[in-house]
Write a protein that binds this DNA or RNA. Sequence first.
DNA 1: GTCTATACTGAGATAGAC
DNA 2: GTCTATCTCAGTATAGAC
Lengths: 213, 213
Amino acid sequence: MIDTKQRILDTAERLFAERGYDAVSLRHIIAEAGVNLAAVHYHFGSKEDLLGEVVLRKIGPVNEARLAALDQAEKEAAGAPVPVERILRAFLMPTLSVARRSPDFAKLMGRLVSEGHIERLAAQRFRPMLERFVPALARSLPALTREELGWRIYFMFGAVSRALCGESQIWLTGAVDDLGDRIQRLIAFLSGAFAAPPARQAALEAEQVEVTK
Amino acid sequence: MIDTKQRILDTAERLFAERGYDAVSLRHIIAEAGVNLAAVHYHFGSKEDLLGEVVLRKIGPVNEARLAALDQAEKEAAGAPVPVERILRAFLMPTLSVARRSPDFAKLMGRLVSEGHIERLAAQRFRPMLERFVPALARSLPALTREELGWRIYFMFGAVSRALCGESQIWLTGAVDDLGDRIQRLIAFLSGAFAAPPARQAALEAEQVEVTK
DNA sequence: GTCTATACTGAGATAGAC
DNA sequence: GTCTATCTCAGTATAGAC
């Protein structure tokens, strides 16, 4: 078959999205795709590289939509700093858009972010997008040092991954579980988080709570 | 040996903390502990259950310290709602305290949180602590519905896990990497996040950014 | 260049002897 | 309680057919 590679990619994407990376073996994939095990390694090299190609194929359009949304927001701001919430919307709404079409993929993305795979897998695809968003945020948040902002963005990804792949809130029961709602709540959460005054360095040594072993 | 179980626990804790759950095989553990492979399954049932016992053993004192710190904060508040930042300190400082003594364990905790293992493993150990912290937060944040607060706490854990186990910030170079600093920054970040006004439900349908496939 | 068949190593788990 | 032997299943590597 000339489309062996495509069939592997499509099947892998579906299975990874449905059940997660670790839970899906290459043998599951090849069985459903109707190809040989070694073909996977021939075309992709390894299971992790296969995951990488699955992700990269989807992440490109998302990041382009993010950049387009940021362009639009900056045009509307007409030279003034773009409100943080507006920047966050530009960043998160394309995710929601993709998630609506393939909800499982959003879960996979969340899982990959939380497991730290994304940074390694898609660094080159994220960089151009981040190189626009980080300065935009920096402009809108002049009170933050670059370092402080960097950490906040880092923390942000943790919260984003929860919004994307989270399912069980052990302390809540029977909560409505619409991804759109979650993203809205996330944007409110992050807007406040970025707007917070920077950490006081002096506070570090101030308090020492000891855990008695 | 009568201390086979202890030796397995101690060795597993060290290796899991140093290299992560997935990266450590039972065969690594038994080799270093000098016990038989089947002994692990006899005493713990499975690798995951072993991880559970390792975590539970450490998490108890941390949560007790958290509760004690919250008690102290409430005493100081003398009946008034405790400031959110104070509650966050009560929650996060014991983590820092443990992390200072065993930095690798903090990383393991962060990893487990981000992978969603913690909720399942330590639900019963977290519940009593959360049943104090959630109402305390609710009192200090009357503008938030219980649901909104629940999601914010959920998002919080995502950010916490990044602070605990994060290492590489792909868009920053040469950042100082002290865990105490990270926690301080995290507290500032979360203080703002919790204080943010609640998400407007109406906003959900307002904006539709399409990703052109 | 593509793909198949098969083998290799290491993982977690288990049955049963002692 | 402990240990040997073995099972199934994973990801990976390679030789060779087309």
